[in-house]
């Protein structure tokens, strides 16, 4: 076989930690996610779910509600298609399984313990610790739930069964809001940690260290 002949050591070819499709999808996701969050806050403000919560004007995307809606319903296609590509790519190449699984309770406790004692190890970017893995799985799940709850709100007749499953139209709005909360929470931690370990940002731009797997 050609590949074996070209690689006499029988090792898989060395690839960057983040191959170019991952980098393109990551930054597409980053921009579109910010558009979705900012415009979502504009839409939310038009009829608030919690009377005590109204997002300040300087945080929302879109001057009027219709502008926020235009942003939201344009960006959703790019975010959704990008997310679908990411999941298909992750499953087909085995990346999702390799990077994010398994998550063991024992490892979670260990990582939390290390973090609390400031002993967290950043020397190897190619290995995700258990907390990292869990956060990535949670945010991917939250992203999928945003698509589901978004459909339940947008298409409560054509996809009425989803709306019913979530407990009705207003319940779907609350689920969509909570999903946003999970993603924004992730975003804050994710960006904060990325700036604390800046080589991770460089890796997501240039590809990072080479890995054989």
């Amino acid at each position: 076989m050609a590949s074996v002949a070209a690689n006499p050591h029988g090792l898989p070819r060395a690839r960057p930690l983040h191959p170019w499709p991952i980098r393109v999808m990551h930054w597409t996701n980053a921009v579109m996610m910010l558009v979705m969050i900012g415009s979502g806050w504009g839409i939310y403000n038009d009829d608030v779910i919690f009377s005590w919560l109204r997002f300040p004007d300087w945080l929302k995307l879109g001057h009027w509600a219709q502008d926020s809606l235009l942003w939201h319903f344009a960006a959703m296609w790019f975010l959704g298609v990008n997310g679908l590509f990411y999941l298909v790519y992750g499953v087909v190449t085995g990346r999702l399984r390799r990077r994010l699984l398994p998550i063991r309770l024992r490892d979670l406790v260990k990582t939390i313990n290390e973090t609390l004692h400031f002993h967290i190890d950043h020397s190897d970017l190619t290995k995700y610790n258990a907390v990292q893995k869990l956060l990535y799985v949670v945010v991917i799940f939250a992203g999928v739930m945003q698509v589901v709850s978004g459909l339940a709100i947008w298409k409560r007749v054509q996809f009425g069964w989803i709306t019913e499953l979530l407990g009705g139209f207003q319940a779907a709005r609350v689920v969509h809001f909570l999903g946003m909360g999970v993603i924004v929470g992730f975003l804050v931690v994710h960006v904060l940690l990325a700036f604390l370990v800046p080589q991770t940002i460089w890796a997501m731009l240039a590809g990072g260290p080479k890995v054989r797997e």
Binding site: V31, L34, V35, G38, P56, D57, W58, L59, K60, L61, G62, H63, D67, L70, W71, F73, A74, W77
Partner: peptide, 25 residues
């Protein structure tokens, strides 16, 4: 530019692109 309550939709070509997406929808 992404976060500070900006109104990029007031730019004519941005607005045209957003409205084109709305027609697609």
């Amino acid at each position: 530019t992404l976060l500070t309550g900006c109104e990029p939709e007031s730019n004519a070509s941005v607005r045209a692109a957003l409205l084109a997406m709305s027609r697609f929808n």
